[in-house]
Design a protein around this nucleic acid. Structure first.
Lengths: 351, 351
DNA sequence: CATCTGTCGGAAAGCGCTTTCCAAATGTCC
DNA sequence: GGACATTTGGAAAGCGCTTTCCGACAGATG
């Protein structure tokens, strides 16, 4: 006699749909229709039986099986450059919020600033048949890497996946672009209006496009304000707190001539302020400091940082929406996001 | 005539194993053995053919199909309380690092401080047959929720999954425990040694065990230092920057009597310092402030925060190791992590 | 040369689910 | 009451992979 079904241990692992169907005395098809969303309706009576059985067995559909049977998932791949950087996790938070509303699952991958890994992750998401992939990276000037990433994204799109990038245009995909140049230009104008005439720029890595745009935008602004830009001190370093620290240190050691220092992002600005402090250069009395991004976690810094405000969470939400809305065959769109200059205590008005 | 296989569009989506096998002129089984790790070896000649075909077609195995065929995944579920909080993403970063080394995929879920969602996510990971789940949450005193989470984790473990928790013991699972009490006690002793006798505690939410432990540990320390604890001012508020701000504000408005304020975590301490600044209370001249955690992003704050240092990234790595190492049937282990008191500028020595 | 062992490739049976197709049951209309 | 459309439930064919068998073949042994 075979009583295994009714007696015996409850089988390792979660209950399967077959078991639910058996218990409810209906077919697999019916159980599936009741539990896992289908366009066909099932009669009241059976429906209730299935639901009851599922509840009793603690049934949860195996998403892998569904993925493979349906040939599509509800996974959204999110590739960020560095999870430990507030810029990225704030955007990530926005993306996750938006995706949760659409009951999509976000799989987050942090490349740890390795572009090679970025490509690898996109490829992994393609293999996984993710519904969409959102890349929040930093564009570099490395043509070969960019091309490979673009190719991988194209493959992904051709396989039916949706794509959105933040900050990286020229990949032929939907993009949310931060108007770095415009923001930096306005910041420069505002700082010039405060009376500054001698500037230094902590320009970040030379091959990072975001940094470069902010840099050139800033210089543009100075030019428009009639500030001679020939003697602007420029230091390149990592796009991080420590990079900012090192750059500012070098600036001081080389003889700080500027009255105002523009760091290409807030995190660098914070590093710079720390370096100035260590070198007994007072901010803003001896030198003004401005950043870019307006990172929330840094708002309690003293003196408060003058910066260009970006709504990063909104940025993330928009990127997600961009990837997921509209028809797959729509041409790639570009959403431009503008920053707003916020003057705070880290920059002072010159007499 | 049927030339679809050789001509026609390259079929939407990534190549399947069948196609690779066809192209290489071998069976499905052989192709699988060559490409996706098997204990059986395939002869040199065929092996090379398969590899070549796979490369040419850009083949990537579909992980869902593998998951379902193997009955196991290489997914590690990571459930954190709030991705936008440095405490959590630092731990998350550690977990991801450790998992990457073992070539496991981390799926990160942020509950946004909702315990209900925490349970839901664990359940989702169970359905997904995740290899392990790591819960980095905040224990509450809510018995019912805790019980449901424990039950869900037990189900997960019974289904063959591995579990580790950070900070939440009494769930019957592997745990990395921060010695909150001990750390807070030592901090209190150190502060008393600086000459402080009148204290206030920003105790966080009353139902949060982490906060409570730090609170009581701190009081213990004061007692051991011979400080009368009857008149310690205690304010409860959210476990966040804004909570700290509100609590400190209230403290000032009620008449600040203490010379030293202990905030149950760094983020609250930062909020408190902001509130003091806004209220023209100078730190550390008028009041000393201490926190807990030693969040990296906050190290450039002025004055620098006295706190209890935790190596959060290491914590994450350990949690991952705890979940993944050892046999499934091993009894639940507990790893204790001790914090170190770091005295910095936000607390001053009283004359 | 017949037998045995060991290696290697392939056929086919799943894994847990969705979905198409079919058949039975029900309702509708003249 | 018969011809017809309309539901509603179930059988079974996949989805892309792994893995268990099984058979073929090569070399070793007596």
């Amino acid at each position: 006699m075979d009583e295994r079904k009714s007696v015996g241990p409850p089988r390792s692992g979660p209950a399967r749909l077959t078991e639910v169907a058996d218990q409810a005395g209906v077919s697999l098809a019916t159980a599936s229709r009741v539990l896992n969303g289908s366009d066909r309706t099932v009669g009241e009576r059976l429906s209730r039986r299935v639901l009851a059985a599922a509840a009793q067995l603690g049934y949860r559909a195996n998403p892998h099986a569904q993925a493979i049977a349906r040939g599509a998932t509800n996974i959204v791949g999110l590739v960020v450059h560095d999870l430990a950087d507030p810029y990225y996790y704030t955007i990530a938070d926005g993306v996750m919020r938006e995706c949760e509303q659409r009951s999509l699952v976000v799989v987050l991958a942090s490349t740890r600033r390795d572009s090679e890994r970025e490509i690898e992750y996109v490829s992994a998401f393609r293999a996984q048949r993710a519904r969409a992939v959102i890349v929040v990276g930093s564009r570099t000037t490395d043509v070969e890497l960019t091309a490979r990433l673009a190719k991988e994204l194209t493959s992904f799109a051709e396989a039916g996946g949706r794509v959105a990038c933040v900050t990286q245009d020229r990949l032929g995909a939907n993009t949310v672009v931060v108007q770095n140049r415009a923001g930096a230009t306005e910041l420069a104008l505002a700082l010039a209006r405060l009376g500054h005439r001698r500037f230094a720029v902590l320009a970040g890595p030379a091959d990072l496009l975001t940094a470069r745009e902010r840099h050139t935008g800033f210089i543009d602004g100075l030019t428009r304000a009639g500030v001679p830009t020939g003697d602007v001190q420029v230091v390149h370093s990592a796009f991080s707190r420590d990079g900012g620290y090192a750059a500012a240190q070098q600036l001081v050691d080389d003889g700080l001539d500027a009255t105002c220092v523009f760091a290409c992002n807030d995190v660098m600005a914070v590093g710079a302020m720390a370096a100035f402090r260590d070198r007994r250069v007072r901010v803003p009395d001896d030198v003004s400091v401005a950043g870019f991004d307006d990172i929330k976690t840094l708002r309690d810094l003293v003196p408060q940082l003058t910066t260009v405000h970006l709504d990063l969470e909104d940025l993330g939400e928009r990127a997600a929406a961009l990837a997921l809305d509209g028809a797959p065959e729509d041409p790639a769109q570009t959403v431009r996001v503008r920053g707003q200059v916020v003057l705070r205590d880290s920059t002072r008005r010159l007499p």
